[in-house]
Design a protein around this nucleic acid. Structure first.
Length: 821
RNA sequence: GCCCGAGUGGAGGAACGGUAGACUCGGCCGCCUCAAAAGCGGCUGCUCGUGAGGGCGUGCGGGUUCGAAUCCCGCCUCGGGUACCA
């Protein structure tokens, strides 16, 4: 008998899939009634090579695709590369050469690794976001946003990474550090492009209701990131400047307790407020000192520093003149950049008041007592009562809140306000390897969109693409100097490139036809395939990528380009693979290379083990020994199939009439139907491939045990079922064994279905407990009445009862009897 | 600090109110072999017992229930998210 040699088997079937175009899925013609499924894994960034996380991600998706194809769906399963970005550029700088060459090389390596793994990808739809044929449409989308007023350029303090020499989006700053390089991010004032994602904040929240199945924690993370809060805007009047300064508060009920006022150091009114006053030098000094500190430094430092401006402002309800201070715990980027400070009911304001000797006036108390001394009383529940609040005294706090807002509104001093933590998305980057922003700056016409027929704005070659604080594109003078599309006069191109997250915020639409040169997509095709039925990826994209993609989809829906509002109906987030308790990384030296494992054990064993490790949503610890077990299982299956074949059997799709089988044959056939049922349900309902595979292993064990005592038909049926069930996980070896059994193309075979006649049995084992402890087991006929089961159970444990009278007996039909004594 | 998630044999895990530890790895014993590898068979939670059998066991402490790894309350540990957001 020939041995199981994965390398030969895998090469053979990969070739067959390619020549027979097994996984190429054309778009259904209009009116085609095919049931479609779009299964998508997050596209890889083409760094050096695939890591174990990719293997897990794409193997999960591939198993689903195979099962769904065989259950009659037309499945779209494409692949592409998120190819612009810093790592390729940094590698090129390190090694010399062009980022494009590094990227091309990496893509070639990753593609061949993917083919080596045998994932059933429709390679005719392959795309790369750095190709002009792709980014032409990224630029088109940018211009859609520009035309709708959703893309704008403004000067503001931005997050700057000194190492990457570029700005970063809010979402890319983690604990004050650059997500990419880990460098401390500093603040810098620059003129940059933004997307008005804040305009979609409420819809990003509301449309979560349209999502069919997303992990609750991802939704929670997005909700927290969007950070909706309800409160009121209150305008305080400053007499010296004769100006209103608005604040945002979630606690308008505490307005009577606002004993001072704080403005952020970056607030534009600060210079005006102190100009010419004796406090001017001290205040400007504090502002300078603050802006010199890094974001991280400021975030870490919880001490309440600040400086008095010497000015006062009028509390609109008490009429009191309260002092204005500058303090860096008030953030320019949230609310209005100014706050009313209520030290009695806000911890931060309380600390500040204590540190600087400012008055503390409680205005809310518990229903049956006084507010605590020496700390902020921040409780905000329904049964609190007002005090020190004029005519509102004695009123319930929630009623007072409404009444105070109404009063402010009547006086024109405020109104109810909803506020969001989400800020606009900064998309400019001062780096070379990215998509050019298709905008021309004209002295006469201002910022002008490059017309559609002039797209793409091709990324020019430059002599030196190292980061230098401004975009390397600025040195391509021939490219930069152009003519204004509107007036024809001399003009210059925008030299910043786009955040690469833009490229990956719409790629799932382009797969519908990546070769369409007339449009980004055809609406009838995207509406046919999308929303994506199942999206699969790492939870690390819970905010950035998934929020941006949802935003783009809504904008494009509003533009009439899409017939759906959410891109991904169902999301599955896989757990990470660890080694020695830590995330695999080159610096820790705990990388396990998929290539080496595939070479040693075969792609099928690697795929099988990655799925067998545990539930895919859980983090998992890599163990080198496990893959050997996967290989042994396949080898034993291989040997079994060849023995079955040698005995003269082949593919057997029907176990026959259960009544006609011998007891041993019935056992084997039952196990097979049990495995079909379990593997199908565990895979489809919960993606728990680990237990589906275990069911296959149990089936193999049972066939091996009964091979010689059961009749050949039952053995052939069970063996056929085993090969068929394992195909989505180990497609190469399953295909080979199917052929050995005389079958043709397993990937086109219908998915097996379990027969109820084999899932139930004539007899059942009843567990007999005394006081919840197992004392015996009895075998009884399946339909036996509760009374008879009870009698049999009492019989079986008579010795244990030892004459004691049962106080109560619980009978769970078909399962157990519990006797309480 | 706040919000999630997870704690089960030597390891990964199974059991989603009803036999705790399926399946796999590792370990031990045996068969095969001149030998090794591979393969095949058996044992493998802890503990008392020669044995039959018993006791204890799902992070800790309570509770609900005839019955709890599973549900509820209070802790502990680990992981993730977020953090001066007014």
């Amino acid at each position: 008998m020939n041995r199981y040699e994965p390398a030969a088997v895998e090469a053979k079937w990969q070739k067959v899939w390619e020549t027979e175009q097994a996984f190429i899925t054309p778009n259904p013609a209009p009116g085609d009634a095919a049931r479609t499924q779009y299964v998508l894994e997050m596209l890889p960034y083409p760094s050096g090579e695939l890591h174990m996380g990719h293997v897990k991600n794409y193997t999960i998706g591939d198993a689903l695709c195979h099962q769904r194809r065989r259950r009659g769906f037309t499945v779209l399963h494409p692949m592409g590369y998120d190819a612009f970005g810093l790592p390729a550029e940094n590698a090129a700088i390190r090694e010399g050469g062009h980022p494009r060459d590094v990227t091309t090389r990496n893509i070639a390596a990753i593609r061949s690794q993917m083919q080596r793994m045998g994932w059933s990808i429709d390679w005719s739809r392959e795309l790369s976001t750095c190709e002009p044929e792709y980014y032409r449409w990224t630029q088109w989308i940018f211009l859609q946003l520009f035309e709708r007023g959703l893309a704008y350029k403004k000067e503001a303090a931005v997050n700057w990474c000194p190492d990457c020499q570029t700005v970063l989006a809010n979402e890319q700053v983690i604990d004050g550090l650059c997500e990419r390089s880990g460098t401390v991010v500093v603040s810098k004032v620059l003129s940059q492009w933004y997307f008005r994602i804040t305009e979609y904040a409420q819809r990003l929240l509301d449309d979560m209701a349209l999502l069919e199945d997303w992990p609750e924690r991802v939704l929670t993370m997005q909700r927290n990131w969007i950070g909706r809060s309800e409160g009121a805007t209150v305008r305080f009047h400053q007499g010296d400047l004769d100006r209103d300064i608005p604040v945002y508060t979630t606690r308008p009920d505490t307005l009577f307790g606002a004993t001072f006022f704080i403005i952020a150091p970056e607030h534009p009114l600060v210079p005006e407020l102190v100009a010419g006053s004796e406090r001017e030098a001290a205040v400007l000094d504090y502002v300078r000192h603050t802006s010199a500190r890094s974001e991280e430094d400021r975030a870490q430092d919880k001490s309440k520093s600040g400086v008095d401006t010497g000015r006062t402002i009028t509390n609109p309800v008490t009429g009191a003149e309260i002092p204005i201070w500058i303090a860096d715990y008030v953030l320019m980027g949230y609310g209005t950049g100014a706050i009313m400070a209520v030290p009695a009911h806000d911890e931060r304001d309380h600390e500040f008041a204590v540190a600087h000797g400012l008055p503390i006036v409680p205005v809310v108390r518990p229903a049956d007592g006084e507010p605590p001394e020496g700390e902020a009383y921040t409780s905000h529940s329904a049964d609190e009562v007002m005090l020190n609040s004029g005519r509102f005294d004695g009123l319930r706090a929630d009623e007072a809140l409404r009444a105070i807002v109404e009063m402010l509104q009547a006086d024109g001093r405020g109104e109810p306000t909803v506020n969001y933590r989400l800020r606009d998305w900064l998309i400019s980057r001062q780096r070379y390897w990215g998509c050019p922003i298709p905008i021309v700056s004209c002295p006469g016409c201002g910022l002008v969109a490059v017309p559609d027929d002039q797209l793409p704005v091709v990324l020019p070659d430059v002599a030196d693409y190292r980061p230098k604080g401004q975009s390397p594109l600025a040195t391509a003078t021939e490219w930069v100097n152009t003519t204004c599309p509107t007036c024809g006069g001399p003009a210059t191109r925008e030299t910043d490139t786009m955040d690469t997250f833009m490229c990956s915020s719409w790629y799932f639409l382009r797969y519908v036809d990546p070769n369409d040169s007339t449009a980004a997509w055809q609406r009838e095709d995207v509406d046919r395939w999308l929303p994506v039925d199942q999206y699969i990826g790492g939870v690390e994209h819970a905010i950035l990528h998934l929020l941006y993609a949802r935003f783009f989809t809504k904008v494009l829906y509003d533009g009439g380009f899409l017939g759906f509002k959410e891109p991904f109906a169902r999301l599955f987030t896989q757990g990470m693979i660890y080694k020695d308790g830590a995330k695999m990384s080159k610096s820790k030296g705990n990388i396990v290379a998929p290539d080496e494992l595939a070479d040693r054990w075969g792609a099928d064993s690697l795929r099988l083990y990655v799925l067998f490790m545990g539930p895919p949503e859980d983090d998992a610890e890599w163990s080198d020994g496990g893959i050997g077990g996967a290989f042994r299982f396949l080898q034993r299956t291989w040997n079994l199939v060849h023995e079955v074949k040698a005995a003269g059997s082949g593919v057997e799709l029907d176990a026959g009439d259960p009544a006609a089988l011998s007891p041993e044959g019935l056992l084997v056939a039952r196990k097979a139907h049990w495995a079909i049922d379990k593997a199908t349900r565990d895979s489809e309902q919960r993606f728990h491939f680990n237990t589906a595979i275990a069911a296959g292993m149990e089936l193999l064990n049972e066939i091996s045990r009964a091979r010689d005592s059961a009749e050949p038909r039952a053995v052939a049926f069970a063996t056929t079922a085993l090969v068929s069930l394992m195909q989505p996980f180990v497609p190469h070896v399953a295909e080979e064994l199917w052929e050995v059994l005389g079958g043709k193309r397993l990937w086109t075979e219908p998915w097996p279905t379990a027969d109820d006649r084999f899932l139930t049995s004539d007899t059942v084992t009843i567990v007999v407990q005394i006081n919840g402890k197992v004392r015996a087991r009895v075998e009884v006929a399946a339909g036996l009445s509760d009374d008879e089961v009870q009698a049999r159970a009492l019989d079986a444990v008579a010795a244990h009862l030892d004459g004691r009278e049962p106080r109560r007996v619980i009978v769970v039909p078909g399962k157990l009897v519990n006797i309480v004594v």
